[in-house]
């Protein structure tokens, strides 16, 4: 099966702390921080959107892969905040990374898992020899209704992955991928609506946990693997608590999920969430390490991957901009008014 030949990530520099949002709504910040296991989140700059984040991540992925962008035969962008309702983000990305015009492109939407769905599509195209390399990106500037619990977590960021099948280029083999999917109305946003609506606690058990747990178990069944076979595990991270609980239910330790658990300090980057977690884990993984990745998208479904890091990873590491560096670099803390301005909620008349 095809493997990962390069990846890249991007995070905005702006941050807002839970305390700053809680102050506006008279919420108990410490209760929220403990309840959601989150302390701050990223906020897009006024000149950033899902397309600019996707391009920055994609350019880093091409550089990391060390391949000519012209050999990328497919570009998929998963997001629930595509800048246009009609006009693809993927065409902006293909032009900005310079694939040339002989390329398959499409925008994908499956709540927070459209990016991992794109990886599965790219694997199929590469394995069937229809293309040499395929790129999938998860990128979002996600929306949270003011005063809603989501406002504390909905953040911005993205990651891009390139898959190919040249053995000497693959930094991580994708051994198996499966999906667990159902029609579950846990979270949605209607056409033209500014903010998503969710079913409160219903998003937990019937939504997140049912799909994440079952997809992971299905992967174990089909590969014959068990949690102790994996050095690391990455789960979709709508908050800091859900992935920790899912890991515990499946039998993973805190150490196994630690490198990829980013939501407590960057928030929920939606389509970027599990992919940024995988990028952060690959940043520190060594040859031979096994990684489980299980994404989740409301509506609902999970994609699960068994990934094995190869010896090529060290040779390419110097070309990576690590996720940890993006988290630390140039952080700018903003107040709630600036947050509203950056989100486009207030403007000069």
């Amino acid at each position: 099966m095809a493997g990962i030949v390069g990846y890249g990530a991007h995070l905005p520099i702006y941050r807002i702390k839970v305390e700053e949002i809680a102050k506006v709504w008279n919420d108990d910040a410490s209760a929220i921080k403990n309840g959601l296991n989150i302390s701050e989140k990223t906020v897009p700059g006024r000149d950033e959107d899902a397309a600019t984040i996707a391009v920055e991540a994609a350019r880093r992925a091409v550089k990391h892969a060390g391949i000519p962008a012209t050999q990328i035969g497919a570009v998929y962008v998963g997001s629930e905040s595509h800048p246009y309702a009609v006009k693809p983000t993927a065409t902006i990305v293909m032009e900005a990374i310079g694939t040339g015009n002989n390329v398959m492109c499409a925008d994908l939407e499956f709540a927070c898992k459209a990016g991992t769905a794109g990886i599965q599509m790219a694997i199929g195209l590469v394995d069937s020899n229809m293309i040499k390399y395929g790129m999938s990106i998860g990128s979002d500037t996600s929306q949270g209704r003011p005063g809603d619990a989501l406002e504390y977590t909905a953040s911005a960021g993205g990651a891009a992955f390139i898959v190919g099948k040249e053995k000497n280029e693959i930094i991580a083999n994708i051994l198996k991928t499966i999906s667990y999917t159902s029609d579950t109305p846990d979270f949605w946003r209607r056409e033209g609506a500014s903010f998503p609506t969710h079913s409160g606690r219903f998003t937990g058990e019937p939504g997140y946990f049912r799909h994440v747990i079952n997809a992971s178990k299905l992967l174990f069944e089909e590969t014959g693997m068990k949690p102790s076979d994996f050095k690391y595990a990455v789960f979709h991270q709508p908050n800091g608590k859900f992935p920790t609980n899912a890991a515990k239910q499946l039998g993973f330790s805190e150490n196994q999920i630690k490198p990829g658990l980013l939501t407590p300090i960057i928030g929920n980057t939606y389509s970027g969430s599990s992919m940024l977690g995988l990028a952060a884990t690959l940043d520190v993984a060594k040859a031979g390490d096994m990684i489980l990745v299980t994404s989740f998208g409301s509506g609902a479904g999970s994609d699960s991957f068994a990934i094995e890091v190869t010896e090529n990873t060290d040779g390419k590491r110097k070309r990576i901009v690590p996720v940890s560096a993006l988290i630390e670099k140039d952080r700018k803390y903003i107040d709630y008014s600036t947050y509203l301005k950056n989100r486009g909620s207030i403007m000069k008349t």
Binding site: G45, E48, D49, T52, D330, K332
Partner: peptide, 21 residues
């Protein structure tokens, strides 16, 4: 020039980023 908190001065090294104009 993006004001990313870095020093904006004559001689500052920059890279080309991709943004909404």
């Amino acid at each position: 020039i993006i004001d990313n908190g870095g020093k904006i001065a004559i001689g500052t090294k920059v890279r080309a980023a991709f943004r909404k104009m």
